[in-house]
Design a binder for these strands. Structure first.
Lengths: 167, 167
DNA sequence: TATTGTTATACTCTATAACTATA
DNA sequence: TATAGTTATAGAGTATAACAATA
């Protein structure tokens, strides 16, 4: 490992034993991005998870609460309050699915699309700032690599029975 | 965005609105790595956070509990029990720092170094599996990119006063 | 007066269990 | 019998506050 100093720490002061763990750094990077986005979304009156729901709905005609819980790796009981919040603000609508009346058909509204656009702009800004040390080429490689790494995860996730999913 | 299907979802079924958020994927990737490592370390009788403490100590002569809490972004009160656990198993030692008797001088033992080596091997195995879709070149680029992105974070973290740190 | 480490407590968040309605 | 959604509750995890010892 390069950039190592005499006392075993790297530039920035992180001990080498930690700095050399890509998983640790990646995990904290995800945490950092989330914290910054949480702060950036505060003026819009939503949390990151609301934004993620809007992001899902913005690219799908409609989704059920269960489907959304699966994608976000959240417990289905948490989706209740989440969709409640969005519905109360007119950002999405809930309607019973005619072909399976147990399910809701959740759809994003015009107001929801608008808020999503603004929130997405904030998310992109945060990404710009956090990934600023990288060249645009490096950013593309990073983005593509993460997507490629996660593909088998999402595929496996899809096959897993709901009631046994470990979160 | 490539690989998009008619209904707005990507291969693997993740809605495009989510899949295109690198931050979301990166965040879940960190979560996935952590979950898998948690499971891999169970036979060793330690959790990921114990491993991270050992990893720090393995590359430093000694550290105080405060320093370790800062590096791991954990509340200092949590370090008490964590070091308790390790000390009880003979994996580290606690001694008062002679030059500042408020601080502990936490040092890793031979048994601690041995357990760290075994845990690190598990961590590397998990990394191998998760990053398997990438070429070794891509892995190097990814690892280096994450480290580069996080450098300013750790530098800023170091400067931040302890009692005001937001976690 | 400020800081390290500690304990006990309060709080936040999430999962669990039980329920209704649909299938 | 199983699943979608809901509610209330219990549990895990974390931070907060207060303290002792030291600087």
């Amino acid at each position: 490992m390069a950039d190592q100093t005499a006392d075993g720490s790297l530039r920035g002061g992180l001990p080498a034993g930690l700095a050399s763990l890509t998983g640790f750094q990646l995990s904290k990077c995800g945490w950092w991005l989330e914290q910054r986005l949480e702060a950036a979304l505060e003026p819009l009156g939503i949390r990151v998870r609301h934004f993620l729901v809007l992001a899902m709905l913005s690219s799908s005609d409609s989704l059920s609460q269960q489907e959304m819980a699966d994608f976000l790796l959240l417990d289905p009981t948490l989706m209740v309050g989440l969709v409640d919040d969005l519905e109360a603000r007119g950002l999405c609508t809930r309607a019973r699915n005619p072909s399976d009346r147990r399910r809701y058909t959740v759809r994003i509204t015009e107001a929801g699309l608008d808020l999503h656009r603004r929130a997405r702009a904030h998310a992109d800004d945060v990404g710009e700032e956090v990934f600023e040390p990288l060249s645009s080429d490096e950013r593309r490689v990073l983005s593509r690599a993460i997507g490629q790494v996660m593909e088998p995860f999402w595929a496996e996730q899809k096959l897993r029975p709901r009631h046994k999913s470990a979160r």
